[in-house]
Design a protein around this nucleic acid. Structure first.
Lengths: 109, 109
DNA sequence: CCTGCTACCTTGTAATGCAAGGTATATTTT
DNA sequence: AAAATATACCTTGCATTACAAGGTAGCAGG
């Protein structure tokens, strides 16, 4: 059967959504890229690869939504930890609110 | 303040989501482009323009998700009505299920 | 030393949403 | 009758994203 359309659709659906999820994953404290990939992988329908997350994290930093610092690890190469800036926290709050509005809107379509 | 990131994010968030909403708007029976634009406009966070919907409807048709036919109107130019094909109905069901899975996944993040 | 896991990054491609344009019909206003 | 407004369709070019496929490097176990 032709799953091409569906597969592409799910990819499109992740656009923007991934950013929100990543910010929410960082929010409680701090997190590094490889860790976030593993956490989000467990959420059905939200698979994410390294080639996807690193550009996103870079953009977050460029936009001033997060701060980052390297930290040595005994289990491998150094990890780049990220945490939300004030701007990032504010924006995430707004994004979460927008998300809920949309979810509600879609529900009673 | 800098709303650029937020505005762009909402645009990205609409990707894929609009397709699902349009299909759901057509599902009960039939609908034409201009009509769908007006209906979806009322849903907060889901604004859509004509330059967005017509390419989507064309793609639906190209992918065999909908059938279409022209119908004269006394209120203006002819309308192009769309209705879901069997394939479209099946796919929409799958899309709605995926959407709910993702919404639930995001909820308990 | 070599395989596997950890951990980071970059490049090129495909796909989408949208602004900004265009065309044409029917109704209402001037 | 001319102009304006609402209806209704469409296309082109741009900006943005997610992803596959590649690359680099550190650490541990056999």
């Amino acid at each position: 059967m032709d799953e091409r359309f569906y597969d592409n659709w799910t990819t499109q659906l992740r656009k923007g959504l991934l950013e929100m999820c990543i910010l929410n994953a960082i929010r409680p404290g701090r997190a590094y890229g490889y860790e976030i990939v593993r956490r989000l992988r467990q959420i059905e329908g939200l698979v994410i690869g390294e080639g996807t997350i690193y550009p996103i994290l870079s953009r977050f930093h460029r936009e001033g939504l997060v701060e980052s610092h390297l930290e040595e690890s005994s289990e491998g190469p150094a990890r780049k930890y990220y945490e939300l800036s004030d701007r990032g926290k504010k924006l995430l709050k707004k994004m979460n609110a927008t998300w809920e509005t949309i979810v509600r809107g879609v529900q009673n379509l």
